[in-house]
Computed example of a mutant assay.
Amino acid sequence: MGKTAEAIAEGVSIASAAARLTIRNRIVVGTIANDEPFDVAGFGPFARETLLSLAEEQEAAAELAKRQRKKAWGKFSDPDGTHDYRDRDTRNLRKRHRQYVGVAKELRRMADDPHVVRTLVEQSRDAAWGDVEANLQRRLRVEGMRPELDPDYERMRSARMQSIRLVDLPRLAAHRRRPGDDHAGEEATDAEPAVADESPARRVSGIDLSELDS
């Protein structure tokens, strides 16, 4: 189990990371998705509530460990499962109880410290903006990518051409032959002179498939 102080510090660190994630998500939804102005003070109450909620979870875990320890006291038979504790587990359950209580106490102290709450909101804001920036950069790279700059262009080109031949063109042909389309016959009639010299097996909806082979 390690030293109690070290375990408490680790628990607080994990809980703080969970709080930042929760606050970051609220910032993303509020300021970006709903186009609301960002205000550090405005997110303070939510950050404080998040810390208190995490503290309550730790307190509930501490109470559970306490009940498990009392239930395990004086039992020396083999356990029936992972959480079926026996007398030999009471020492670790006591340590676990102290650790949960210590983490909850520290989280409540953090929730009552305005400086800590503000710092937590600012860190969450930076994480939210970092996510947005990364998403924008990925989108710009995709939309602004030219074939000669795409390292996977040549490798994926044959797959894309095959997808066009096997999926897109048959779907387009079926759409043009759809019953009740008054213009389908006219388009087919207009296209006949242009394809008179082409092999019918090499054209779909007036498109020369040989052009996709290169």
Results as ranks from 00 to 15, higher is better:
81 G>Y: 01
203 R>M: 11
8 I>D: 09
148 E>M: 05
113 D>I: 00
107 L>K: 08
101 V>N: 13
210 S>M: 11
184 A>K: 05
79 P>D: 02
6 E>D: 13
141 R>K: 14
57 E>V: 06
74 G>W: 13
142 V>T: 14
129 W>F: 00
125 R>L: 00
205 S>H: 05
146 R>M: 05
166 L>I: 14
33 A>K: 13
71 K>Q: 14
195 V>M: 10
214 S>K: 14
13 S>E: 03
108 R>N: 08
134 A>Y: 00
197 D>W: 07
176 R>S: 13
74 G>I: 14
140 L>I: 06
15 A>E: 05
145 M>N: 11
135 N>M: 07
51 L>Y: 01
64 L>G: 05
84 D>K: 03
4 T>D: 08
57 E>I: 05
93 L>P: 00
101 V>I: 05
186 E>N: 09
42 G>D: 03
84 D>W: 00
71 K>W: 10
137 Q>P: 03
39 D>M: 03
68 Q>S: 12
13 S>C: 01
150 D>F: 01
147 P>W: 06
183 H>A: 12
82 T>Q: 09
209 L>D: 04
66 K>E: 08
140 L>M: 06
41 A>K: 14
207 I>Q: 08
101 V>E: 12
185 G>Y: 06
34 N>G: 01
203 R>F: 04
38 F>E: 10
199 S>R: 13
187 E>S: 11
162 Q>T: 15
178 R>S: 14
75 K>P: 10
119 T>N: 15
46 F>S: 09
13 S>I: 04
111 A>T: 01
55 A>M: 04
143 E>V: 08
7 A>Y: 09
136 L>R: 11
148 E>W: 04
59 E>G: 11
90 T>A: 02
5 A>T: 11
1 M>Y: 06
169 L>G: 13
135 N>V: 06
203 R>N: 05
162 Q>L: 14
113 D>W: 00
129 W>Q: 07
112 D>C: 01
88 R>M: 10
104 A>D: 08
28 V>F: 13
140 L>H: 06
78 D>G: 00
64 L>H: 08
118 R>I: 03
36 E>I: 03
205 S>I: 00
33 A>C: 03
139 R>G: 05
13 S>G: 05
192 E>F: 02
96 R>C: 07
39 D>K: 09
35 D>H: 15
9 A>C: 03
147 P>R: 07
145 M>P: 06
14 I>Q: 07
183 H>R: 12
27 I>W: 08
90 T>F: 04
141 R>S: 13
61 A>W: 11
59 E>D: 10
124 S>V: 01
207 I>E: 02
55 A>S: 13
174 A>E: 12
58 Q>M: 06
14 I>V: 06
30 G>K: 13
113 D>T: 00
128 A>E: 03
154 E>D: 15
133 E>L: 00
107 L>M: 02
126 D>W: 02
173 A>C: 08
147 P>Q: 04
50 T>M: 05
164 I>A: 13
133 E>K: 03
12 V>K: 04
32 I>F: 15
16 S>R: 08
21 L>H: 06
160 R>M: 12
15 A>V: 01
152 D>E: 13
184 A>H: 11
69 R>N: 07
32 I>T: 10
127 A>W: 02
211 E>C: 07
7 A>E: 13
136 L>S: 00
63 E>P: 02
77 S>N: 08
17 A>W: 01
24 R>N: 10
190 D>N: 07
70 K>S: 14
98 R>P: 00
206 G>A: 00
54 L>V: 02
30 G>H: 15
